[in-house]
Design a protein around this nucleic acid. Structure first.
Length: 996
RNA sequence: GCCCGCUUGGCUCAGUGGUAGAGCACUCGCUUCACACGCGAGGGGUCAGUGGUUCGAAUCCACUAGCGGGCACCA
């Protein structure tokens, strides 16, 4: 834990065997005993013959394994017939004291009360009737061994059967098993019993049978159920305390709630008494003493016991308590209970317990029960259940499987920081261990280091200064306002994620901020200022800002990556005592004692964020064109930008230096209209802006064609070679499967590339060259896709997009055209998305509920008008399978009818009689009456029927019997029921009813 | 048998009604002076299947299949 950098108060380290905690244990034991919640008794328990101790139900592990089911015949005493029983453990028959059958089982009805002769022993045993017996299983008759089987034990109690102990604590047969068997190991005895039954002709058959066998969780020895004198803790009352807490206060709150809350309560509901004594050498010795005559005295100490017993001739119970008994007291015993200490008052109840799911029963539930019992309050508010790290195959790690991962080794290989942040990112889901993930966080650590190195290399004359960020914010450059906004938004997101235990979210947020926002963009954007030769005020300010942002980022990262953040923080100029959390004023400076950053919401600047994003998008598109066009990285190209919006032009203008540096431009020109030469690559940006790179002189079509030809030759050569190899029968026959598959794959790839290249050359370049020239001429392009009328828009898009892929230009022209083709086509998301870029000028004013965005796009595209006209609140939504059109009802219906009448029925949602009249007179097909009172529905329905017999009426809303009647009277032929309020689950049904 | 969870690109996983994401892997290009544990660009997913609800479903509901977990039983 220390190496891992756990930030705990080591001065409070505790061990349950410490004297103070042991005292709490005795105190609790005595108290529960006096209340009757702890008792000592002879019960059947889980006994480990190897460890020589009793175990609780939770310490027993059930393993399914193949075994045999033996059918043994027990003759009747009167010699007439008998009963066959089935058993997996024949040796226990020596301790049988009855055979049980189900009272309703016709087959055995006459046998109930009969006496059987137990073979090998000569014992006479009765046949008893017990509901427990399942007539379907085995023969329907069960041998009953009360001393060696938990269920038989219960049956035995119900029928007052004798308990014959035939197996001892070492799993050897006892004298009671008969002199032939005494001293034999249980498995030897099994063989012998089976052999003798066979000899006597009483072994009916032996079936293969798989069943679960109970083993000792620790040593894997098969458990022997034995009757034994042990200490038990009654759980019913304690359990109710925990269940009540959940019902009344919903505590503890499990995170994640599903499935753990239910797992926890289900377990509590089925809880049985807890065996708390153990026959181990180590643990809290049970505070019970015995007098010479066997009287029991329970007390906190020997002295007290003597006083109670009135004698000092006492011997203490040799057994110890289950370790989980003392663990259950942990939340308060560590705080000094039973003393009423300051710690106890201050820290109890605690806030959160972080734990693994397999100790919810062992520990969490018991802490809750004991906390409620002795403190009267929950021990903690929340329980965060971590995920489990599985091995590569998805198996749980275990010592026996040797598939565990040694954390120290991972620390050595990748560093503690990388390991920690990787594990934190897992949150509460199970995850397969994957070193690659740790490696990626190691790379992240390296990135942090290098970024900080850059900052430190350029820090002369500057120092961390949080106050500086707030001064003159409005006068700062765009990228500065942007990074401050990003930083504070990230900070706010961190608080949100952490308070909800969304660790994965938190880690992703930090990773993205640091790597993408801070390193990829901010450092690059501010580099010129920061690395300036001359020591100007501007340089100092830039350096200060850079250091300050870095410092806050380090503090955000610190809980996840303590070592690297401390190391770097110590080196930052200005990272000193001033930054410490006030509570630690005067301490020596360390990032550990600084305050976790709070978000300065006034620095969150949406305006700066979208502006910066526009510039970033611009640079990305330019880089994309450069890359696709194979423009050399070093080559500078002229960039032409157009933006109809003046504000956007100003944003670009202000960033010209950045753009030319980061997009490698020789010249940047910005205007309101794009005036690019013919052979230009273009891209569409948001806000109706466009960017173009003239390719004249940069790309030589003839040369490009030759380059591609050369590449083609290479692919073809490779393919031929591979094909020759595959054609060689010897190779195919003798080569290992893996190799031949690899060759096939390589060939496929080479061939694929060849084909793609061919296509590119033929369909692309040659057409490109031609179309490039005609690109600006819309009529020509239109002619090019003249058959578009007959094909679906989706296909046109595919074609155009493919086209654009080759050309990287003309996209906007193509899409303009598509807008006009849209009326004949089925609209697709892809289409809308594609158009959004070019139609941005129109869509731009979108500001409506997210649920309607898609509809509105369609509406806009189909000429329904600007989005601002479209409002659900106006009650003029018109729907027609995925279509909404803005405007007044009359206009809208006409519009819809005209555009889509032949494709769809026009459904109009109405809320007034005027709407209704307009809708009907303009040809609406369906009226939707939604969310209106029943009387209103009936009234409007009647009006509608008077006006037109063709129009159908659809109703939805709050469905009650009365409403349905009103809807029917309104002439509704469809009633949509969208919610049934009184049902636990919302059911969604649509009724078709006959019109009156 | 009962209850619960999971199924998203080659891999490991995010994403609880509005244009499918990350890391790794892959392809192309780059000795750009913080970082090749790097930089830039790119390809790749009918979100297990079927049906339903919705203007719209990876997301809500039902069923099916596969995987996993818990509980009970196992004579």
């Amino acid at each position: 834990m220390r190496r891992e950098g756990a930030s705990v108060d080591w001065s409070r380290e505790k061990f349950t065997m410490d004297e103070d905690l042991s005292r709490a244990v005795r105190e609790v034991f005595v108290s529960l005993y006096e209340e009757g919640l702890i008792y000592r008794g002879n019960r059947i328990v889980n006994w480990c013959p190897n460890d020589q101790t009793v175990l609780s139900d939770l310490e027993v592990q059930k393993d399914p394994q193949p075994g045999k089911l033996y059918y043994l015949r027990y003759p009747a005493k009167n010699g007439q017939g008998g009963v066959t029983v089935a058993t997996t453990r024949p040796e226990t028959m020596l301790g049988d004291t009855a055979v049980a059958v189900n009272p309703n089982d016709q087959r055995y009805r006459n046998l109930i009360g009969a006496t059987l002769l137990l073979p090998l022993t000569g014992r006479e045993i009765p046949v008893v009737a017990d509901e427990f017996v399942d007539p379907q299983f085995g023969t329907g008759a069960v041998k009953v061994t009360p001393a060696h089987d938990p269920n038989d034990y219960e049956i035995g109690l119900r029928h007052s059967l004798t308990q014959v102990v035939v197996i001892d604590p070492h799993a050897k047969m006892t004298e009671a098993a008969g002199s032939d068997f005494a001293g034999l190991d249980r498995y030897k005895a099994r063989q012998k019993v089976v052999a003798e039954f066979e000899e006597l002709g009483l072994l009916e058959k032996v079936d293969d049978y798989e069943f679960s066998i109970s083993k000792c969780e620790r040593c894997k020895t098969v458990i022997e159920p034995l009757i034994s004198l042990q200490w038990f803790c009654r759980m019913d009352k304690l359990r109710d305390l925990a269940l009540d807490l959940m019902v009344k206060e919903k505590r503890p709150q499990f995170v994640p709630e599903v499935p753990y809350e239910k797992v926890y309560t289900n377990w509590l509901e089925n809880l049985r008494d807890w065996t708390i004594s153990r026959q181990l050498w180590w643990g809290h010795q049970i505070p019970a003493w015995y007098t010479k005559d066997g009287k029991v005295v329970v007390a906190c100490s020997y002295e007290e016991a003597c006083a109670k017993a009135g004698t000092d001739e006492l011997t203490q119970d040799q057994d110890v308590l289950d370790t989980w008994f003392s663990s259950a007291l942990w939340p308060f015993s560590t705080l000094g209970w039973p003393e009423e200490t300051e710690d106890l008052k201050t820290f109890y109840p605690t806030s959160v317990l972080v734990t693994a799911r397999d100790i919810i029963f062992l520990w969490v539930s018991r802490m809750v029960m004991m906390g409620m019992k002795f403190m009267g309050q929950r021990p903690f508010d929340e329980v965060f259940v971590t995920g489990t790290i599985l091995d590569k195959e998805g198996q749980r790690m275990s010592k026996t499987k040797m598939n565990g991962v040694d954390p120290l080794e991972v620390f050595d290989n990748y560093g503690v920081d990388a390991t920690r942040i990787m594990l934190a990112s897992v949150g509460s889901t199970d995850i397969r261990w994957n070193e690659k993930q740790v490696e990626s966080y190691r790379n992240f650590a390296n990135k942090i280091w290098n970024a900080a190195r850059f900052c430190l290399m350029n820090s002369e004359g500057a120092a961390v200064d949080p106050e500086s960020l707030r001064v003159g914010v409005q006068e700062q450059a765009l990228h500065d306002r942007w990074i401050l906004s990003r930083l504070n938004k990230t900070t706010a997101d961190m608080h949100e994620a952490l308070s909800g235990y969304q660790f994965h979210e938190a880690v992703q947020t930090l990773y993205h901020f640091f790597w993408n926002d801070f390193c990829d963009w901010y450092i690059e954007l501010t580099k010129t200022e920061v690395t300036a030769e001359e020591a100007t005020t501007r340089r100092t300010e830039a350096r200060t800002r850079l250091l300050t942002v870095l410092e806050q980022a380090l503090r955000l990262l610190h809980p996840f990556m303590p070592y690297i953040t401390e190391e770097l923080w110590q080196r930052l100029p200005g990272a000193n005592a001033k930054l410490l959390n006030k509570s630690y004023a005067g301490a020596s400076p360390t990032i550990m004692l600084t305050a976790y950053p709070l978000s300065a919401t006034e620095l969150i600047d949406e305006e700066a964020e979208w502006q910066m994003q526009a510039v970033i998008d611009l640079m990305s598109r330019v880089r994309n064109i450069r890359s696709e066009m194979n423009i050399k990285p070093g080559e500078r190209v002229p960039i032409l930008i157009s933006a109809p919006d003046e504000k956007l032009r100003r944003v670009f203008s202000a960033s010209v230096d950045q753009i030319s540096r980061l997009a490698r431009a020789s010249d940047v020109s910005i205007s309101d209209r794009l005036n690019a030469p013919r052979a230009s690559a273009r891209a569409v940006l948001s806000g109706g802006a466009e960017v173009a790179i003239p390719l004249e002189g940069l790309i030589d079509f003839e040369q490009e064609r030759q380059r591609l030809r050369k590449e083609q030759d290479k692919f073809q050569a490779e393919a031929s070679k591979l094909e020759a190899q595959l054609g060689n029968a010897n190779f195919v026959e003798r080569a290992p499967e893996e190799t031949s598959q690899a060759i096939v794959a390589r060939n496929t790839r080479a061939r694929g590339r060849f084909v793609a290249g061919e296509k590119m050359i033929v369909a692309g370049l040659e057409a490109a060259e031609e179309v490039f020239i005609s690109l600006d001429s819309q009529p020509q392009l239109e002619a090019f896709v003249a058959d578009g009328e007959e094909i679906e828009a989706g296909k046109v898009i595919a074609r155009m997009v493919g086209f654009a892929d080759v050309l990287l230009a003309g996209e906007h022209v193509a899409l303009n055209l598509l807008q006009r083709l849209s009326a004949v086509a089925t609209l697709t998301n892809q289409f809308v998305h594609a158009v959004e870029g070019t139609g941005a000028a129109i869509v731009d004013s979108l500001d409506t509920t997210p649920g309607m965005r898609m509809l509105e796009r369609y509406a806009v595209l189909l000429g329904g008008g600007r989005c601002s006209h479209l409002g659900l609140d106006d009650g003029v939504l018109i729907t027609s399978n995925h279509l909404a059109i803005a405007g007044g009802v009359a206009d809208a219906v006409r519009n819809a009818k005209q555009k889509l009448g032949h494709l769809h029925k026009i459904k109009v949602q109405i809320s007034s009689e005027i709407d209704l009249q307009e809708a009907i007179s303009n040809g609406a097909d369906i009226l939707l009456l939604e969310g209106l009172p029943a009387e209103e529905v009936a009234r409007l329905g009647a009006v509608a029927r008077n006006l037109s017999s063709v129009v159908s009426v659809e109703c939805s809303g709050n469905i009650t019997l009365q409403n349905v009647r009103a809807y029917a009277e309104a002439g509704a032929n469809t009633i949509s029921i969208s919610a049934l309020t009184n049902s636990a689950r919302a059911m969604k049904v649509t009724f078709q009813i006959q019109p009156f």
